[in-house]
Amino acid sequence: MKIKSIELKNFRNYEACTVEFNPYINIFIGQNAQGKTNLLEAIYILSMSKSFKTKVVEELIFFESDFAKIQGDIVTHDKNMNLEVVLSRLGKKAFINRTEIKKTSDYVGYLNVVLFIPEDLMLIKGSPRLRRKLMDMEISKISPIYMYNLNKYNKLLKERNKYLKLLHDSHKGADEYLEVLSEQMAEIQVSLMKKRMEFVELLNDISVKMYDYIALHKENLKIEYKTHYKDMSYECILDKYRQNYQKDILFGQTNNGIHKDDIMMFLNDKDAVTYASQGQQRSIVLALKIGLLELIKKEIGEYPILLLDDVLSELDDVRKTKLLNLIQDKVQTFITSTSIDGIHHHVIDVAKKIVIENGHVKGEDNGRK
């Protein structure tokens, strides 16, 4: 999977821009606030039809323009395709080969990306919500049915919470409608939890090997899916809802479900959240991200694209070298950086360097062969 070129119109600080890419390593170089991350964000939107930085569409549109357009030519499974996302104050539209795609789940997956940003270093000690988001986002890329079911679950959860507040305010107990909502959510959860379990088990198998390489065989990593249910059967999940009816009504919210699950990480059988050093945390996150590349490759038959937003500056020389070794000649990668001085690696030498200044491409260097 590769992206050959991208064309931007009225996107962020790019009024008009077209860039062709190297099939392996591309580095966007420039000072802060010039548009490096915006270009990376455009690639992400082309993949996911949404930004990783904002939910406000107006922020993505060039000053006083009516719309923004991102268009890219990609190659996937040896087929050339054209993807396009148009953003306006009325919403967004996505196109594949000039044909509009109405459902997000039918669009996502043609251009797969793995994003690595400095905030990801909080994955270990940050909120469980961050780890759930990672799970849901990565599974959705390779399973449209998971995305469909997750959206359905979230709508039911919103409706159930709204109804719980109504019951609380009216001083009423559980009734038939609450039971119906609980039954529907339990049914969907069975499928979602099984997919999450499969995903985490596969990610564990791959990431453990990656961590062993990055950490120089000094520690053992283990990743587990944490759920609050004894088993993943419909009966067990529904029974848990019923047990919590009174508590849910009291607090006006659903207190159990997949929206409370987590990913647990252990180093030498000790909880990484409590015991991992900062360096170990960075190694775990790096192993997870590389693990995701390999997992997606295993699932769809080709590597996704890797987006690294100012991550190299966050890693020490050893981890930097390990990362570059693992992606060399395999994964098309896009890197943003204010400078690559001092990074000595063949991957950097042969990379295409694209200099960005105030929303314009000011220079390109295809690297040494």
Rank of each mutant, 00 (worst) to 15 (best):
L111M: 11
K226G: 04
A174W: 12
E41T: 06
L293N: 14
E84G: 02
M185T: 02
I290L: 15
Q280N: 05
Y234Q: 12
E15D: 11
F334I: 01
K4D: 03
T18G: 04
G30C: 07
D231Q: 03
Y110P: 10
S233V: 02
N358G: 10
K230E: 14
K247V: 12
N255C: 08
K353L: 10
L216T: 00
E294L: 13
G252C: 02
Q328L: 01
M193D: 04
A68G: 13
V285L: 01
V200M: 04
F21C: 01
K209C: 07
S313I: 03
D271I: 06
K362D: 08
R242G: 05
E119D: 14
K369L: 00
L216S: 09
L40F: 02
I348M: 09
E183T: 01
R160L: 05
S191L: 13
K55R: 10
M185C: 02
D120W: 01
V285H: 03
Q332L: 10
L150K: 15
L267N: 06
S337R: 13
L39P: 08
D231G: 00
S182A: 13
K133Y: 06
D341G: 12
N268V: 00
D120I: 06
Y177V: 08
A215T: 03
Q253N: 09
L134W: 00
M197Y: 12
N161E: 05
I284N: 09
R98T: 03
E299V: 12
R282T: 06
D136I: 06
I356V: 11
E84Y: 01
R129M: 07
V75W: 01
E138S: 11
H171G: 08
N97T: 05
T18N: 13
E302F: 01
A272N: 13
E100F: 00
V208Q: 14
D248H: 04
Y229F: 15
L90I: 00
R131F: 03
R89Y: 04
T54F: 07
H259S: 04
V285N: 05
Q328G: 01
K158N: 12
L292W: 08
V331M: 13
V85I: 06
I117T: 15
A16R: 15
A174G: 15
N112H: 03
K152D: 13
D341L: 07
L130K: 15
I249C: 05
E176S: 10
E364H: 07
R242Y: 13
L130C: 10
